[in-house]
Design a binder for these strands. Structure first.
Lengths: 202, 202
DNA sequence: GCGAAAAGTTACCAGCAGTAAGTAACGGGG
DNA sequence: CCCCGTTACTTACTGCTGGTAACTTTTCGC
């Protein structure tokens, strides 16, 4: 849906920005949803009805784009899990619902999820963690508070948060290539592991 | 250590292959260790003392290279964890040792780990799972056998295997950017979560 | 009105994955 | 013994992508 086939060089009439940052990010999501996780910045620019340097001006390079999209996806996940839980107290069934909501959000944004977790092959150490860190920061806090509440050492919170997020990411990746398994089933199994531990409750 | 600065075109003298597949993979590991996870196939070819089409003939494209290196890294991890456990029965301390050995192996092969888990931005769905699948296949078997042994449902084995591997990968990634934490400490914390579950043992 | 700043586009560069075409040595059949 | 198909390389290219420099046109303050 690019409105103008081509624009003249020079500042456009009307004294307004032709697109803002959000428009570019929306276009990026459309392109990724359509063309897959290997989409190029050029394609994003075309979809936004604009040229590449504008994309660089609005959102930055490829790593910045991935980061911005990671933030959006993370927000949507937080929203989905929050409404799924809706003030429920922390329990195994609550955890199951949390994981299931997570899985469903990933399924709704397959290609975007792959794009964001795919990384940029460059300073990927930081890049790959972009989505993870956004998810872990609040999770770390929640875990620390909760562990303190049940008289347990809250010092494990950060490591646990990264571990849980990694588990969810890998399970999501595996699950979206195996559509025979239901989200409920997988969520229940992972919840079982995370709540009761490897040996299970006696 | 490329022996010859330049070679004439045409079949080389001696009636022998100038390098075999293993040599190319060794060269790839050296390049990645030196130049980081963003290394190019061209650089690998130069390091191997050969040209690009030879790399394509011996190991294939970038995805195949990543896959072959994933297999090597996976083998090294299996070896490290196996010698670390050395016939020990499955217990929390054994699990801790397993995780710690895993972390140390990743630390020993930082850039290779990042290269392999970095994916190729393309059909990454399969690509990213290459290292994971190699690790999960035996782990799935182990878990299924063990769960059967303790009279628990073994049907969770596959999902658990992917979950555990994802947890380890993400924790590794986070840990290697945070050298203030010791491997023992992190391994102990993750082992605690995985063995006792989120609420802990009463 | 006029010139500096703003907001675009065009046109380019460098690097990379992957491939087609060319070249020289080997080796078996006449 | 020589000749030609096969083998095993290199050179040289294409196509694409991330990123940037240089140019063009409008706006707006003085």
């Amino acid at each position: 849906m690019s409105e103008s086939i081509s624009r003249r060089p020079g500042r456009p009439l009307g004294g307004q920005l032709v697109v803002d940052r959000e428009h570019v990010l929306d276009a990026a999501e459309r392109v990724i949803r359509r063309d897959g996780a290997g989409s190029s910045l050029e394609a994003v620019a075309v979809e936004a009805g604009v040229t590449k340097p504008i994309v660089y001006d609005r959102v930055g390079g490829r790593a910045d784009l991935a980061d911005a999209l990671a933030e959006r996806l993370s927000d949507r996940m937080v929203l989905a899990t929050r409404t799924a839980l809706a003030g429920e107290t922390l329990s195994q069934t609550g955890l199951t619902r949390f994981i299931e909501a997570n899985l469903r959000t990933v399924a709704d944004h397959r290609e975007l999820f792959l794009y964001v977790t795919g990384g940029s092959t460059e300073q990927t150490a930081l890049g790959r963690l972009s989505l993870a860190e956004r998810s872990t920061t609040p999770l770390t806090k929640t875990l620390a508070v909760w562990r303190s509440g049940i008289q347990q050492d809250p010092g494990v919170a950060e490591a646990w948060a990264f571990g849980i997020v990694g588990m969810l990411q890998m399970v999501s990746q595996w699950w979206i290539t195996q559509e025979d398994r239901s989200a409920e089933e997988v969520a229940g199994q992972i919840s079982e592991l995370l709540w009761n531990g490897l040996p299970g409750r006696a």
